[in-house]
């Protein structure tokens, strides 16, 4: 009897967790499938009565003819969305590659080697994680205006790196620290330190490297504050700032929802991978 009761409880708990996770997502994303009628309705409908994918066409500037013959016109912001999507992909890809390139050796050195002032430098990295973007915005903005980097992808990439590098370094330090001490083996086998790092450590830690890449990509893909200040309204607009157009100028909930859904595609794609490997990153160890 008590076993049954505990089973019910655990199912209930699971249901609560799933509702907590999915309800906010559902409530918003359903907008993307609503017809203009339904959107205008008050109170808001609990679910789409006649789900239509029109908004997903519209945000790319395509017209969509509904079953009743009414054509829903492509969004006027479509070219912004498309350019934003392209820019976001470029920025995220470059940031991911550069972050990996920079972070792998850095994290390795911090995790496996001893050198003077290591703890102070580690503290500087953690400080960089703790810096609020609003505090560094003006200095970056001032510098960018002087260097001609404001409104450019290069500028956005550099500033995004200041977010990804410290955080991913911190994650990987703990990860690298827990790998077996194969450096000794590699020295016996005659590998130089560089070879050891490139041919032994990186391949051995490939799941950690993959997590690092995914996190760097996500952080960059999801970055909004800097983009808002540094590239908003320019040709270097990213997807989130392009979407802001819907938010503040032309309230079009179905387009907004479809566009936000678009930004969630990469996170959803990596979620399965992340849930398996995220805990291999050790955020706890480096601060110990």
């Amino acid at each position: 009897m008590s076993i049954r009761l505990s089973t019910i409880w655990s199912w209930l708990a699971l249901a609560v967790v799933l509702i907590w996770t999915l309800l906010p997502l559902y409530w918003f994303l359903k907008n993307s499938l609503l017809t203009p009628d339904e959107i205008a309705r008050f109170p808001p409908p609990l679910y789409p009565l006649e789900p239509t994918p029109a908004a997903f066409f519209n945000i790319f500037g395509l017209d969509y003819e509904m079953a009743d013959g009414i054509v829903r016109r492509g969004s006027g912001q479509a070219n912004q969305i498309i350019r934003g999507l392209g820019n976001s992909l470029i920025v995220s890809a470059v940031v991911t590659v550069v972050t990996l390139f920079v972070v792998l050796p850095l994290a390795y050195v911090f995790a496996r080697l001893d050198f003077p002032h290591k703890n102070k430098l580690l503290f500087a990295i953690l400080l960089a994680v703790a810096l609020p973007p609003v505090s560094t915005l003006i200095p970056f903005y001032a510098m960018y205006v002087r260097l001609g980097l404001s409104g450019t992808l290069v500028g956005l990439i550099i500033v995004t790196l200041t977010i990804t590098i410290p955080f991913v370094t911190w994650m990987l330090i703990g990860y690298f620290r827990n790998l077996p001490q194969v450096e000794r083996l590699a020295r016996i086998d005659g590998f130089s330190r560089f070879e050891t790092f490139l041919k032994i450590i990186v391949p051995q830690g490939r799941s950690g490297v993959a997590v690092a890449a995914v996190i760097a990509f996500l952080f960059s893909w999801n970055e909004y504050t800097y983009a808002l200040m540094l590239v908003n309204g320019t040709t270097a607009n990213t997807l989130p700032t392009a979407i802001s157009g819907f938010l503040f100028q032309h309230p079009e909930p179905s387009h907004l929802a479809a566009a936000v859904a678009l930004t969630m595609v990469p996170p959803a794609l990596v979620a399965f991978f992340l849930q398996r490997h995220i805990a291999e990153m050790n955020l706890v160890d480096p601060v110990r």
Binding site: F28, M264, Q275
Partner: peptide
């Protein structure tokens, strides 16, 4: 289940704001 549960962390904070 774990894939669903990790989703909120994967999506952006501005997305969360809109939601």
């Amino acid at each position: 289940v774990r894939t669903i549960v990790i989703l909120p962390w994967c999506i952006s904070l501005y997305g969360t704001g809109v939601i």
